[in-house]
């Protein structure tokens, strides 16, 4: 198991990242505490548009904790504290002047387990546009729902089933429904916390294709346990270990010539 895992980088269909463009989001010196316990130490990272950033690392390394900082989902956890600066287009997301509601409308999230609401397929997608008042009429709402489902690659499968409960879809369809739900409010960043861990390989491949398409319009951050997945879908990879961001760089470099020996050990499967 000591030789590097096989992976291929697909020829990039999207425009190359303009290196000098300012980052969409940027984290500097982020520490997170759960009660007395520090879960994340001094994390610096930039998230760019048109690029998939993969966060990898063994269980409990803090990658999920970090992704939840980016849309302030850690606010929901009673004793979690976040220190350091995280900016979205240069504006601090912890700025009291920035409403967490509008932050989350701009930074969407897809969870590990598909969590469609106990509503119809249509209502699941319409949920965000409704609470943010994005549609002036039923017709506009219909258009948003249709466009979102199309972008999530689900329209063909559910066009005739819009009134069925979202929970009646298969696991992979549910996850794509959740992606449609997230993009219906037209966010700028999409966070994905192990979006395929509850899915079978075929559904996973479907989601990965989708992620590659979504990259054209969004900045995407994905937490994954699967190194092959990180290699397949991401352009930038950050390796977390024991709450620290050990190493980050272009995905190809992280997987072929990592500088840190912990990264080397993880990507070659020696631990984790």
């Amino acid at each position: 198991m000591n030789q590097p895992i096989a992976f291929t980088l697909k020829p990039t269909s999207a425009p190359a990242v303009a290196v000098d463009s300012p980052p969409k989001m940027s984290a500097r010196g982020v520490d997170v505490f759960y009660g007395e316990k520090q879960a994340l130490f001094d994390v610096d990272i930039d998230i760019h548009r048109n690029r998939v950033t993969a966060l990898i690392g063994p269980s409990g390394c803090g990658k999920s904790t970090f992704i939840r900082c980016l849309n302030r989902m850690n606010d929901v956890i009673a004793d979690a504290r976040v220190r350091g600066s995280i900016t979205l287009d240069g504006q601090d997301i912890h700025d009291p002047g920035l409403d967490v509601v509008s932050l989350r409308a701009r930074v969407g999230m897809v969870f590990q387990k598909p969590n469609p609401f106990p509503k119809s397929v249509y209502e699941n997608v319409a949920y965000g546009p409704r609470i943010h008042g994005l549609a002036a009429s039923r017709g506009e709402l219909d258009d948003i729902v249709r466009a979102s489902l199309e972008r999530a690659g689900l329209w063909g499968e559910v066009a005739e089933r819009l009134n069925e409960p979202g929970t009646s879809l298969s696991g992979g369809q549910q996850q794509r429904l959740c992606i449609a739900r997230a993009i219906a409010v037209d966010p700028e960043v999409i966070l994905m916390d192990e979006p395929c861990s509850a899915l079978d390989p075929i559904a996973t491949a479907r989601i990965e294709e989708l992620i590659d398409e979504l990259r054209l319009n969004f900045a995407i951050v994905i937490v994954t346990h699967s190194m092959q997945q990180a290699a397949r879908v991401s352009q930038h990879t950050a390796f977390f270990h024991l709450g620290k961001l050990v190493e980050q760089g272009p995905t190809e470099q992280i997987f072929t010539s990592p500088r840190d020996e912990r990264t080397q050990g993880y990507v070659t499967g020696r631990f984790g």
Binding site: V76, S102, R104, F111, K113, P116, I131, V185
Partner: peptide, 19 residues
């Protein structure tokens, strides 16, 4: 997870409860 899903779209607590 349902509550998280709702918060993550930008719903407030009361919207999440009601909807």
């Amino acid at each position: 997870t349902l509550r998280d899903g709702s918060y993550a779209i930008g719903a407030t607590k009361s919207e999440t409860i009601v909807r």
